[in-house]
């Protein structure tokens, strides 16, 4: 896919709003984690969401993805109400996310982790997987190949090929294969395809972070939310991750990025929203936000956390 035009509100005449957070308040007992928070996210941009520890960034993600329900206010995505829906429905609407504390399926291989994401796009469900009666006429490249030198095996392959031509292939099988191709493709996109068949728990830390991104991308979202994807990375790794985030945007995804490291956010985002104690204290282009005295104060009050 070709790189999309940058569409920040300044240079586009009429930017299209993808996500609208509208007066969201979220309380945990006495703690006000989000306090009347409002901001917009435009199609095709990379929006940074920053703020000191405990500012409510992760909570904002949780409110958007259905993990928590806002106490008041609404989240709209693509013009549709998000708040109040179940997490899997919100995912189907087109929001995918990663977690700050990595939450992969540790007993699954990297490939299977991505497949779980890809499954959400598949139409086969329990009955289809059980009986496999729904047949689809395969495209030529989807037919079983006949390539064995062994006569007996070759005969078997020919039988399978002609039966696929006559009776078609079950939608389940086709989707399963398509999912696998897509999963491999995504693993190589994020650069970890060399460990595709290792259990997620055995992957190095950096790989796990990237695997989470691949898994989220597999659900074919319109909006990808990354919760501190570079936490615990050294500067070189952070640079690679920035590159990856740009590549993701160039593929046409809109990205919402939570990050602690100011420099990292400056380098990649189109716009930034700054939170403190659940309130929005600033919003705008990176350069403006960096020089905003409120932001400086918030960050000076809580130094040296960009590990």
């Amino acid at each position: 896919m070709l790189p999309k035009q940058k569409t920040s509100p300044e240079d586009a005449a009429k930017p299209e709003v993808l996500l609208e957070v509208d007066g969201v308040t979220l309380r945990f007992g006495g703690v006000v984690a989000l306090d009347d928070l409002s901001f917009n996210l435009y199609k095709g941009e990379i929006l940074g969401l920053i703020g000191p520890n405990g500012a409510g960034k992760t909570t904002c993600f949780n409110a958007m993805t259905g993990v928590y329900r806002p106490t008041s206010g609404a989240v709209r995505f693509d013009g549709q109400q998000v708040s109040g829906r179940k997490p899997h429905r919100i995912n189907q609407m087109g929001i995918a996310r990663t977690f700050q504390n990595i939450r992969l399926f540790p007993e699954m291989t990297a490939l299977e982790n991505v497949l779980v994401g890809a499954d959400s796009q598949h139409r086969t469900s329990v009955v289809g997987a059980l009986f496999r009666l729904y047949r689809v006429k395969p495209k030529p490249e989807e037919l079983p190949t006949v390539d064995s030198a062994n006569g007996l095996v070759r005969l078997w392959q020919q039988v399978r090929r002609s039966s696929a031509q006559v009776f078609g292939i079950s939608r389940h099988t086709l989707e399963e294969r398509a999912g696998e191709r897509k999963a491999y493709e995504l693993l190589s996109f994020v650069g970890i395809d060399d460990r595709a068949n290792d259990l997620a728990r055995n992957l190095p830390y950096g790989y796990q972070r990237r695997l989470e991104i691949a898994r989220a991308l597999a659900t074919e979202p319109k909006l990808l939310c990354l919760d501190e994807p570079a936490a615990g990375f050294n500067p070189a790794e952070k640079e690679e991750l920035l590159e990856l985030i740009r590549k993701i945007r160039d593929r046409g995804f809109t990205v919402l990025l939570i990050e602690h490291d100011m420099r990292l956010v400056m380098g990649v985002t189109d716009r930034i929203v700054v939170l403190e104690f659940g309130k929005k204290i600033a919003e705008g282009a990176p350069a403006e936000v960096r020089d905003n005295p409120k932001v400086i104060a918030a960050y000076l009050g809580e130094p040296a956390d960009a590990a």
């Binding site: 993805t65 259905g66 993990v67 179940k86 997490p87 899997h88 995912n91 189907q92 995918a96 996310r97 977690f99 939450r103 992969l104 399926f105 540790p106 007993e107 699954m108 299977e112 497949l115 779980v116 994401g117 499954d119 959400s120 796009q121 598949h122 086969t124 469900s125 329990v126 997987a129 059980l130 496999r132 389940h172 989707e175 399963e176 999912g179 898994r215 989220a216 659900t219």
Partner: peptide, 26 residues
């Protein structure tokens, strides 16, 4: 058949981390 299909994967994912699975569309 179920075990080796998206259904088995979904069950495993739910067992491992129900909330993460839900956010991934399961």
């Amino acid at each position: 058949r179920l075990e080796h299909s998206r259904v088995g994967r979904s069950w495993l994912a739910i067992r491992e981390d129900e909330d993460a699975a839900a956010v991934m569309g399961v």
